[in-house]
Write a protein that binds this DNA or RNA. Structure first.
Lengths: 190, 190, 190, 190
DNA sequence: TATGAATGAGTCTTCATTCAT
DNA sequence: GATGAATGAAGACTCATTCAT
């Protein structure tokens, strides 16, 4: 028997992400993905049950890649501020070095798909964020607000900022980034 | 010759927004829209050049409705804070009372369509926001940052917060809203 | 609006019957039917929900044509024998003049489709047969057996006989037919 | 080199017959057969040239099983009536105990496949039937008709009767069978 | 204006079959 | 012998769009 060709699997993954970002959901067809990945359309069905399954698995894979990057070097021995800064810088790195992954996620998250997939708490994958904010609240560094609120006022603005930059084709320089981190910190500090 | 039947136009508009929100971009077809709107698919082509034109016009119409609501009672005679609060409360009203419109916009804005449509200029529609922030900066009420940054740290978090609520089926109560407005203000105040 | 083109409907019907008889169930595809009928495959879906619906409607139409032919001139004023003979001769006429219809029915009836369609009592369409046999039993002309048994020993052999002839490309001559009718009668007479 | 695995061959055979009966010709694919037989689709191609060859061999195998059963204990030393009755009872046994085989054959025989396969000659397999009828005619027990006619009025009705029973899920009890045998005999006796 | 009819091109998916191991 | 991987061709069906009325 032939062996599973991981190159093909990867090529399908890449093609999916690229096309969704280039031409959008509704114009991305299995046959276009297959062509871009240089495989037969039928081959896609060896690795994915159907189109939606392909999207879902692609989504999960990217989410995994993202959380992996996001928490590099983030651990309990660090102070709250160190963790806060590291997470944001990692996140920024991820977004800028993996633009396609980031935009793919944004597109998915703003479509009706998550509800269909009953996505609530892949939150568990983002545990370190919660722990960091939790520690910050307990140490009275952050405002005594729901963690979601802290996220929405500190991390999310960064993502939105970068999204705008990505769409303009510009990058955040280090001064702008320092300034944004400061704004994020100030927005939620007690 | 008969006249433009605004009922039909409106029914098509409604059906489009609903379907895009319910089943997403790629599954929303002209014939499904027609069925939902109780018109013939051919009728849609009387009012719209093609599918993309339908989407684009729908987008513009919603954007118009939104800016109209957002700036109700917001004028230069008011203080910066009054305008700030009014805009946010109007925005929250819009999102909560026109959930479908809001989610439609989010979906569009996170797809590759805006780039295809070369959207930036509609910014003009949101002039009052810029004016308010501009006044705030000049009066040294707000931080001396790019206006986009101020938006991203004050208005956008509100939208994200509500998005999370919409997906849970919950509403923001007035206490939560007051608290969020305060956070937004603090995040950008000088 | 364009008017319904009954020629197309008929062409689809004909093509379906022909192809099923020529190349069989599993090789008859919608696109082959469309090609044979000189319409677009999509057109078939205007008149039929799906492939199975096409087969079902075709089946019903043929069954209707058959019962119509079968009972021409068969009524209660006739004697049992007259009705018996007329029905058989009509049936033979139908089979020989509408070979394709007959073979189509045979193919359907011997597939798992009827069970899927819950075909029990299109029997109502064949009421005159039951009435004739019923009268024959009451007048003690026929054996006192279940009507299905009478059918199976008198009418069905005729069909099988003709099927064999059809497959050989021969026809039943009038002498053979007379003889067969006699055999049928003898097989069930009291 | 390994040897032919009769388990697999048999499993493929069984799966083929079952599926054709359950879902019909056109829905029975090689991969479904493989799944049902718990083998790889590729394995089927070790034992069968292609799909049609699989069907043909399956057909032949069943036909063999049937004729084997049908003529158990039927030999020239028996009287015509004994042979007649034995053949019918054997046939009934076969149909009732091997429902799937019987229905498979019916489905094949009513499709265009036999013509494609140029089937007539397998008649040789059913020699004992011809001999029995031939002896019956010579001994002036049966009507002086073509043997096909005798078959069609005596054996075929039994098959049709059982087919109806199979489809209702009922069985022929021994009284009904006795009665049917008598009808068959009467239908063709001189 | 309004729409059912019509269709070529496209959709997703499965097919029968072959290949490499 | 056995099978997972691979695929081109084909399957059923839907699409966006146009046409005739």
């Amino acid at each position: 028997m032939r062996y599973r060709d991981d190159n093909k699997v990867e090529a399908i993954f890449d093609a999916t992400v690229q096309l969704i970002n280039e031409i959008g959901f509704s114009d991305t067809s299995i046959s276009k993905i297959a062509k871009r990945a240089s495989v037969s359309a039928a081959t896609i069905y060896i690795y994915h049950e159907n189109k939606e399954d392909l999207l879902y698995k692609t989504y999960l894979k990217i989410k995994g890649k993202m959380s992996e990057k996001m928490f590099q070097g983030v651990d309990h021995t660090r102070t709250v501020y160190e963790r806060f800064e590291a997470i944001i810088r990692n996140y920024v790195d991820f977004i800028q070095s993996s633009k396609d992954y980031f935009l793919f996620l944004e597109q998915i998250m703003n479509s009706p798909l998550p509800q269909k997939w009953c996505l609530e708490d892949t939150a568990s994958q983002f545990q370190p964020i919660f722990e960091m904010f939790d520690a910050g609240i307990r140490q009275e560094i952050f405002k005594k607000e729901d963690i979601n609120i802290l996220v929405v006022y500190s991390i999310l603005p960064i993502a939105e900022l970068l999204k705008a930059h990505l769409k303009n084709g510009t990058m955040l320089n280090s001064k702008q980034l320092d300034s944004a981190i400061k704004m994020s910190w100030d927005a939620i500090k007690a």
